[in-house]
């Protein structure tokens, strides 16, 4: 959408000038910076608790507490 607009407004702009956009680095994760807010479905591993994926947790809801954030995979 945006690219189409850019190409329409700037005649002659070479395709490769806009195609090879690298992945943007993660932002807001540096030391001393406020961590960006995040909302994702919550997994409940409690036996029998069920898990319909409806539960959520927002990181900013934990303000006032110290948090250890662990990103992982089960392998």
């Amino acid at each position: 959408m945006l690219a189409a607009l850019v190409l329409a407004l700037v005649p002659g702009l070479p395709q490769e000038a806009v195609v090879a956009k690298p992945a943007r680095p993660r932002v807001g994760r540096g030391l001393g910076e406020v961590h960006p807010d995040l909302e994702l479905p919550r997994i409940d591993a409690t036996p029998g608790a069920g898990d319909d994926g409806a539960g959520t947790l927002r990181l900013s809801a934990l303000r006032g507490r110290k948090v250890l954030l662990i990103e992982f995979a089960s392998w």
Binding site: P25, R26, V27, R29, G30, L31, G32, E33, V34, H35, L38, L40, P41, R42, I43, A45, G53, L57, L59, S60, R63, G64, R65, K66, V67, L68, L69, I70, E71, F72, A73
Partner: peptide
Amino acid sequence: PILWDPLNLTGARAVPSFLGIDEHGVVR
């Protein structure tokens, strides 16, 4: 609590990773 991020919305490039975040929401 464990959150499910199949879409890689956090932008993590490798796992595991660990961050200590203070009471103000700041990465320490």
